[in-house]
């Protein structure tokens, strides 16, 4: 392997059970349960997953949940808004730390 992130890893995700079947089974069972229709629809969950995928910058998840969003009935405008929500939170998270900077500046300067 001469690069990080390999597209073929995604369909091979299940191979992670090789080192510990029990934990893999528990994880995938939980994972599949999470995305079932519940108080939130599968479409809403896919939009949340897309936003989180962009936040954690996981290319596997971005591909997977782009398709999932389309298949559960979202369109490009709705998906773009979800990504902007992630962006706003991520950017806001950086910016709100600026208040810590501000306090420190005030402490250290005249």
């Amino acid at each position: 392997m001469d690069h990080y992130y390999d597209r073929s890893h995604l369909p091979r995700f299940g191979e992670i059970a090789e080192g510990n079947q029990e934990l893999a089974d528990a994880f995938f069972s939980y994972y599949n349960k999470v995305f079932e229709e519940g108080a939130l629809t599968a479409r809403e969950k896919a939009l949340i997953a897309l936003a989180v995928a962009n936040t954690v910058q996981c290319p596997y998840c971005i591909d997977t949940y782009t398709t999932a969003c389309l298949e559960t009935g979202s369109d490009l405008e709705q998906m773009t808004e979800a990504v902007h929500v992630a962006t706003a939170i991520r950017g806001g998270a950086a910016l709100v730390h600026g208040v810590q900077m501000l306090d420190q500046v005030k402490r250290l300067t005249m």
């Binding site: 229709e37 629809t41 599968a42 479409r43 398709t67 389309l70 298949e71 009935g73």
Partner: peptide, 19 residues
């Protein structure tokens, strides 16, 4: 009647109907 606009499968019929 809704067909997917692209190379993906159609969504859950009853869930989409409500939305």
């Amino acid at each position: 009647v809704a067909n997917p606009v692209g190379a993906f499968l159609s969504g859950n019929q009853s869930s989409l109907e409500a939305e």
